[in-house]
Design a protein around this nucleic acid. Structure first.
Lengths: 205, 205, 205, 205
DNA sequence: TATGAATGAGATTTCATTCAT
DNA sequence: CATGAATGAAATCTCATTCAT
């Protein structure tokens, strides 16, 4: 890209710190710039505005997260519905990749999850949930279709998708160590997968 | 004394609206007062400051919530551990009361859950989780103690308490109708209670 | 006076404290009234306004001080000019009375001297100096008139009156104990009286 | 850099005027900025805050005053104690320099002496007195040591230092013309120097 | 006598943003 | 590529004062 990435990067690092401490709205461009030994004008030259600076901090993690989600969803669509018969450890691979990503961008994820109010990115979890829910809906319908007298409970589908996402958010908020995180997430996923079939697919009427 | 609470109440109503729209920090005393047709000075006379006004909006709901939690916890402590063997519909009574309360103070609860950043009340869910977790730990230990070769998985205990609380938050955020909410919450609770025994109580080592 | 002096007096006591701590301008009627367990309205009923409350705190000490000054000046006017020939201990009597008064109203005097900015009483020392200077001018002129080739240096007269007053202010600011104060003031007065003759009465041309 | 100090200087000039009129606390940034045809934000950019603006007004005079004091004290320390035997006109040189400085910064000095309450600079005279007193204590002790049966009266030392400083404050407050001021101060200094030896050095017990 | 309610004006400060250079 | 200067709007809060009751 540009020749002098130095100021840009210094600004991103300092912004990350400030956003993490104070949240998007309370973060002060002045403080960020003072820390980066630049003036506020530089932000407007390099990033257009405060929102642009925030985007520069979080966009790469978001893109990688999106890519991972899409791959996960595509794989799930290819799967045989029978695969949803619960086998403990099923989703370990995806979970491992996700955890890897989440902890690689620990600060950025923390900002996105807890410090993004007012930034236009505050609804990332909701977006992820929507995305996943659509994918899971296909699976659930195939499952329900294959069993007579069954149908999908849409509220439970949404909620279970929600707590699945929440499980990772919770993990990130409560466990700073990646390896311990991987240990924690296993029974959680088992529970989620097993409950999915039992509570999302309900008796017709 | 204060027979004439009119201004006070007008202020609370307008504040509720503003907090709901903009969140605690972005809420403007000026706007609130303009809407209530009073000057900002009136806020400082009637409530001490912005925080005091916020407290006036949310304190009653919080107190009632706390009282309900305490009662719930006390009842649970009295229960026979055998009671935890899952019978669908088990916790319906408590759930019903809780839903009743949550929807009675729908706006206030929404504010507390999503719009309280910076107010000193932002950690209400965490506090509730802590409270419940302590109560549930007792139950879980009695359960584990009664079964040989079992022990409590503390991370799962915390997480399951977390998603239980989250279940109600989710409900409030996604379903405006109280009766539908009651329908939604039933299978959720069933799942929670049943999974609790299975995943919180794990094999020793 | 009025039947119920209680509120009035409580207000005066609390006001004295507040003025002493914060000075006239920074003193807050609200704080004073809160401390006195009354409302601000009471001040306006009992004292007209903030200035009136201040006056109520300081007027008695001022009156007594004025009375003492007048007496001192009258006595001095009666004196034989020869009396100004310096005899150490000369003015001890007046000094003792003044010190007595100053320390009887220690708080009030402190307020008047250091905490009265903005109250309309900030120039008390100047007024006292003016008063004394007029009296001393008579004495000085009689003295100069009695000695050929001598005249009064007006600037020195003013300055010496100034430091005489200042001597008492200084005393009050640096010595809380009345008896020690009386010890300190003696050589000061000796110096002042002796220098008076020497420097206020100068050679003609 | 700052070739364009225009706003900064306009602000300082207007601030000086406002502080002189109303004192530090009552001075209004709004008024200052309105007069300077700038917004209050400019003050916060150019000086950090109200205190910073005040400092910008008075810091140079203070530094020069301090430098002069130090030089005076250093010279005095070098002097032969015998030098204290009173020769009228002794200290004229120092006095002349001091008066020069005081009248060069007439407005700033007036602000510092009478309008600085609340600014953190209100105790300038006390600081000067402390500084001088320490220097004079050395002189007084050498003097007392050289004469058998004599000792230093600390209260008189402090008070005489106080009135020395006060003499210049008095001068500044009562005489706007520098040359007349120089005339006035001469006999004052004579009196001070001569009384110093007589009243600060007292008989032992 | 005194209260409780409210005003209205003012205070300092902070912020994102702009723009000529 | 970045600075330095400045804006303008908004923020919370504090105060002396008033007045019907």
């Amino acid at each position: 890209m540009s020749i002098n990435n130095e100021s840009r990067e210094r600004l991103i690092i300092c912004a990350k710190k400030e956003f993490l401490e104070k949240g998007y709205e309370k973060a002060s461009l002045r403080s960020i710039c003072a820390e980066a030994e630049l003036t506020t004008g530089a932000v407007y030259f390099l990033f257009k505005d405060k929102a642009g600076l925030f985007a520069a901090v979080v966009s790469k993690p978001i893109e990688e997260l999106n890519a991972l989600m899409m791959r996960h969803l595509a794989e799930e669509a290819d799967e045989d519905p029978a695969g949803y018969i619960h086998v403990p450890g099923d989703h370990d691979e995806f979970a491992a990749e996700l955890v890897e990503l989440l902890y690689k961008y620990y600060d950025e994820m923390t900002i996105l999850l807890h410090k993004a109010q007012g930034s236009g990115y505050e609804d990332l979890p909701d977006k992820v949930i929507d995305l996943l829910e659509k994918g899971y809906l296909g699976t659930a319908e195939r499952l329900a279709g294959a069993a007579p007298g069954k149908r999908v409970n849409r509220y439970m589908l949404h909620w279970m998708t929600h707590i699945q996402v929440d499980a990772f958010i919770h993990l990130l908020s409560h466990e700073r160590d990646k390896d311990k995180a991987l240990e924690h997430i296993k029974p959680v996923l088992d529970m989620l997968v097993s409950s999915f079939v039992e509570y999302v697919i309900e008796d017709d009427k």
